[in-house]
């Protein structure tokens, strides 16, 4: 079965990944092969079959509405690439 073509540039942008020209070319061909291979699932009769999102049949897992201690500020800031005045700092946000 013919597979869909993958627009690697578009998908990489959705995934916020800069790809080099080499990577783009390699992925284009490798992912093309992989997509050809996964077409196999199209041949399976799934009429009336419910999708499985969880491997277990569990429902209604709730927690009580109680507060708990959070993370100490020094631990948070020690992990932050950039911070100032207890805030995480990022460059300009283009909306």
């Amino acid at each position: 079965m013919a597979s869909d073509t993958i627009d690697v540039t578009y998908v990489a942008r959705l995934a916020r990944l800069n790809l080099s020209a080499d990577e783009r070319a390699a992925f284009q061909s490798q992912l093309g092969q992989i997509l050809d291979y996964v077409q196999a699932i199209r041949g399976v009769d799934v009429t009336g079959v419910e999708p499985t999102a969880h491997a277990i049949r569990v429902q209604n897992r709730f927690r009580e509405d109680v507060t708990a201690d959070g993370l100490a500020m020094d631990a948070i800031l020690a992990n932050a690439p950039q911070h100032s005045d207890s805030q995480f700092i990022v460059p300009r946000i283009v909306e």
């Binding site: 995934a15 990944l17 800069n18 990577e23 992925f27 992912l31 990022v90 460059p91 283009v94």
Partner: peptide, 25 residues
């Protein structure tokens, strides 16, 4: 220069090829 670049460059430099391949797939 901006947040979009932080994402795109950080992820480009931080992830290896197999991870990128699977994220794209």
């Amino acid at each position: 220069e901006d947040v979009l670049e932080v994402y795109a460059k950080t992820r480009a430099q931080g992830f290896g090829p197999e991870v990128k391949r699977r994220i794209i797939l």
